[in-house]
């Protein structure tokens, strides 16, 4: 999400989606006009449900990205080790905004600073599983609050668990 390079909205994935839209739409139409119209109806319902949330979330993400600078996260995770380090890493992963372009260079920097692998694995997993930005932009709009809540509850302790396992493995290899 934090890509700084200028990207045209009409890139390769856009055309891939365009082709998919035409193909799936054509396939529906081939099955009958009613099927096609039902597909359009389903898409329209989804659009009304999803777009206000995604647009709101995009602006929220933009502001959070500005308000939580990378240096803050690095200071947080770099300073602590052990269980406390894992706990802080989990928290930091949740609030780290942006896509892989934001999180991976951060992890690489921490790695070079000598941060504990358990904290790094916990941080990465927490960002992947519990990252607020993805939950707000994608999961809640598409899957609904109930599904998201259930998934978040089941995933909540996984980053810490992975961090602890990573710690054990790292001692042996």
């Amino acid at each position: 999400m934090a890509d700084t390079e200028r990207r045209s909205p009409f890139d390769v994935p856009f055309f891939a989606f365009l082709v998919l839209t035409l193909l799936s739409g054509g396939l529906c139409y081939w099955r009958g006009k009613a099927v096609f119209l039902q597909g359009v109806d389903a898409a329209w319902d989804m659009m009304i449900q999803v777009l206000p949330k995604i647009i709101g979330a995009l602006f929220m993400a933009g502001f959070i990205q500005v308000l939580v600078p990378k240096e803050v996260v690095v200071r947080w995770i770099g300073g602590e080790a052990g269980a406390k380090g894992i706990a802080i890493a989990c928290l930091a992963g949740i609030i780290t905004p942006g896509g892989p372009i934001m999180s991976f260079p951060l992890i690489a920097a921490l790695n070079e600073m000598g941060a504990d692998i358990s904290a790094l694995v916990a941080y990465l997993l927490s960002w992947e599983l519990m990252g607020l930005q993805r939950i707000l932009i994608w999961e809640i709009p598409l899957m609904g609050v109930k599904f998201t809540a259930l998934r978040a509850i089941t995933s909540f302790f996984l980053p810490a668990l992975a961090g602890l396992i990573a710690q054990r493995i790292a001692r042996r290899v």
Binding site: P9, S24, R31, M46
Partner: peptide, 19 residues
Amino acid sequence: ATLPKIVLAIFVSGFFSQI
């Protein structure tokens, strides 16, 4: 960067949900 793709993805979902 994302909205045009999201709109198309929603249409793909709508059509696929039928087939």
